[in-house]
Design a protein around this nucleic acid. Structure first.
Lengths: 345, 345
DNA sequence: CGTTTTTATGTAATCGTTTTCATTCATTCG
DNA sequence: CGAATGAATGAAAACGATTACATAAAAACG
């Protein structure tokens, strides 16, 4: 025997209106805290809402008011520690402001990123926050979105040379500098550097910082110890192998993320080198793993929480007075970084 | 001088209709791949859409069709490795099916969880996927949602004794058993166990598995070596301290997550114990950190990817034939687990 | 007290789709 | 060939809120 289909006709503002003997408009006003509604009616309405278990339909509301109170977020992958932290912060603060977050992962695919932007536009989110893919060089999809009036905030991985975009990023220049000059200070003379692909602002800046430090320290940069690659464990091993094939070995390594630093540490151990005695290693991001491995790895802290807070800050002021032209906020916000010294150096 | 406000009137189906000399209905049909539309018109419409840069308004569409093609996900925190993996899998597969995902974090707060459920209902997501908080014992918020007709799938942390809910979970009973019996097999006689709070099905089951193994191995369970607590680093240290205050020390430890196992490993080292010689440790979840620490930690793999795939599987079949009563899918889906042996045992 | 202002509510248009129903045109068939 | 079927489109009514405008009631004011 088929179960009786309970069709719980989702109730609407109109049901509430009828039940209270008021008009839908008044109900809506109560829902939106409109000032012109008598305290008594407000109470009556709220009670009835409670009683009927009425739940506002955000879709209908969004259609009419053109506000979804939802922010779209694009991120390469949520499993990266740094991004996970940023997201968590953003979400928790947005929640307090009554906003929702739709989190999308691009998997570092430019194609998918483009697609996600389309979807977010179709979904009419109130704004988009994005950390680009490693390979995003063509920003026209973002520009189209912005031209259609959508506020867009870039963070961490941001467009290079796009002055009109709102940008919140870490101080990668300083980060690269700190990591390198730290190695120099503690006596390294032969420093290798595994960088990410130079399409991405992060690695451009960190590399610049590296060069700055090397110059100041008066240490020559050896091209054969310089790598530009996606910073995976596997790629790290390949680079390390190449380095170890040479006649001379470096005494310091700047790795542009902790995954690479960890892989390097392992590899060095396998080759019978002592870290830090024979080789000193600096990573980047302060991934939890970098603290746990032994020896623990010196790395650059990026303060993701602070970045998340700043993002919501800017976001909210953007949403409050939309009249304020997006292009006016032209100076990128830079979040400071810090070197965390551990046992690998 | 204020910049000229470009008001890019977001174009609609009606603009496309006018531009092509067709009716809005036909445009809509093209958009939805309705069979009754001539190939030629379809082409014409698609070209015009391209030309105008028209982008469907999902809000309006959702209001009329009562389908948002968005799934709501509630998760304690996305930074937990296991959940991050599950989410990533779900999102990538859903994307292929043309669905969006709204990810919400409860921060393990029952209050927030309740709130999020309300919001997801208001947002009219097509379904909800949830891993409960550690302390969710009252499921009425979920039940209300389900009664309103919303499909709900629980995973990992699921309601206990709620036969009518759709449940997808790991084999925690087996996991607890495997961890414990492994210690017994390799010679442990005195086994401690740091469990999570028993409100949560996960720890109930793992504990049961623990007891089963102890019984079969004919090893007495010592209450003073049994802890039920939120599985943080700090709590782990407190428990360990208590254990080490005793006259006798265990030779094996079953930790219900890797964070606890890692903390225990550190603590043991500090106390001058050798792992695994003096103390053997098993963790749970196969967190990346467990492989990296030395000695690497034996742990239980939960196959989050597989779980994610299964979740979408069930979800899709649920959304396809909604007539199929949710209550009919009564048997929980159990994802197998596996012991990963490493150097800590 | 009549007039103006402010507060409180109602009426009805509106947001941009989808979808039912009707209509037209072409095709098939007895 | 007329009727019946089916394919292709259009007209218009939804969906459930918000909000501009209108109106009524209450308060303020000279």
């Amino acid at each position: 025997m088929p179960a009786i289909k309970k069709v719980p006709k989702s109730n609407t503002i109109i049901q509430v209106a009828e039940a209270t003997g008021l008009s839908p408009a008044t109900i809506s006003r109560v829902l939106n805290n409109h000032p012109y509604v008598k305290e008594a009616t407000k109470k009556k309405v709220l009670e009835m809402i409670e009683k009927l278990g009425y739940q506002r339909n955000n879709i209908a509301s969004g259609l009419r008011s053109n506000k979804t109170r939802t922010i779209g977020l694009i991120v390469p992958r949520i499993s990266m520690f740094f991004h996970a932290e940023v997201i968590t912060t953003i979400q928790n603060i947005l929640y307090r402001h009554g906003y929702n977050l739709t989190i999308c992962q691009s998997n570092d695919s430019v194609e998918m990123e483009k697609d996600l932007l389309r979807t977010l536009q179709a979904t009419r989110v109130d704004a988009v926050v994005a950390a680009c893919t490693l390979h995003t060089t063509d920003f026209t999809p973002y520009e189209q979105l912005m031209n259609s009036g959508m506020p867009v905030i870039f963070y961490d991985r941001v467009p290079v040379e796009r002055t009109s975009a709102i940008v919140i990023k870490g101080d990668d220049l300083q980060g690269g500098y700190l990591a390198t000059s730290h190695l120099i200070e503690i006596g390294c003379k032969k420093i290798a550097h595994i960088s990410g692909p130079l399409d991405c602002n992060l690695y451009q800046d960190r590399l610049k910082g590296f060069y700055n430090a090397m110059k100041i320290g008066n240490i020559p940069v050896r091209k054969e110890w310089l790598f530009y690659q996606e910073l995976t464990k596997e790629n790290a091993r390949i680079a390390l192998k190449k380095i170890f094939e040479g006649t001379e070995l470096p005494d310091g390594l700047v790795a542009d993320n902790d995954t690479t630093a960890i892989a390097a540490l392992k590899f060095a151990k396998e080759m019978g080198l002592k870290v830090p005695a024979d080789l000193k290693i600096v990573g980047y991001s302060n991934d939890p793993r970098s603290e746990i491995i032994s020896p623990s790895i010196t790395t650059i802290e990026q303060y993701p929480t602070q970045m998340g807070e700043k993002i919501v800050d800017v976001l909210m002021s953007l949403l409050q007075h939309k009249n304020l032209n997006q292009a006016e906020m032209t100076a990128p916000v830079i979040i400071p970084v810090q070197l965390i010294r551990r046992l690998s150096t």
